[in-house]
């Protein structure tokens, strides 16, 4: 068994059986005998799993952080979460901002998406301008 499955042995001491049914379907039998059919598909950088209406993406060990990590990053750089057009940049370098302030407004699919300050801070750099098309993960600005 590959090393990625290591957490299983430590986190679930009870017996858990997974049996491939073919066609990317898997029969999961829990310790209490409950059966569920899960589906799995290998994607870029990880594995997608569907189980009872819920979807999971399990990154491969050593894969780069998922895109969503960039979108929710509350560190120094704020990034675009999706392909979008920058509608407005509401701040200037050096400006002090408070948690929740709208710093940049993006627009995609005719909806405006405000990018808010994740915390109090000072704008270090602006990395986008109004009218620009940005890609997922593109840094928009940096907070000190």
């Amino acid at each position: 068994m590959s090393s990625e499955a290591e957490p299983l042995t430590s986190e679930s001491p009870e017996a858990l059986v997974v049996r491939p049914l073919g066609d990317r379907r898997y029969l999961v039998t829990l310790a209490d005998g409950t059966q569920r059919v899960a589906l799995a598909a290998r994607g870029a950088g990880g594995t997608w799993v569907f189980l009872r209406g819920r979807t999971f993406f399990i990154p491969d060990a050593g894969a780069s952080p998922a895109r969503s990590a960039a979108a929710r990053d509350d560190g120094a750089a704020l990034a675009a979460p999706m392909p979008a057009t920058v509608v407005a940049v509401n701040v200037e370098p050096g400006a002090s901002v408070s948690h929740g302030d709208v710093l940049v407004v993006l627009e995609a699919m005719k909806m405006e998406l405000p990018i808010k300050a994740p915390r109090d801070g000072r704008i270090r750099r602006i990395l986008c301008r109004a009218g620009e098309l940005v890609q997922p993960g593109s840094p928009l600005l940096e907070l000190d």
């Binding site: 068994m1 590959s2 990625e4 499955a5 957490p7 299983l8 986190e11 679930s12 858990l16 997974v18 491939p20 990317r24 898997y26 999961v28 829990l30 569920r36 899960a38 799995a40 598909a41 290998r42 990880g46 594995t47 799993v49 189980l51 999971f56 399990i58």
Partner: peptide, 9 residues
């Protein structure tokens, strides 16, 4: 069980 299915996949 989801991790187990991912490992199996």
């Amino acid at each position: 069980e989801v991790l187990a299915v991912a490992a199996a996949s």
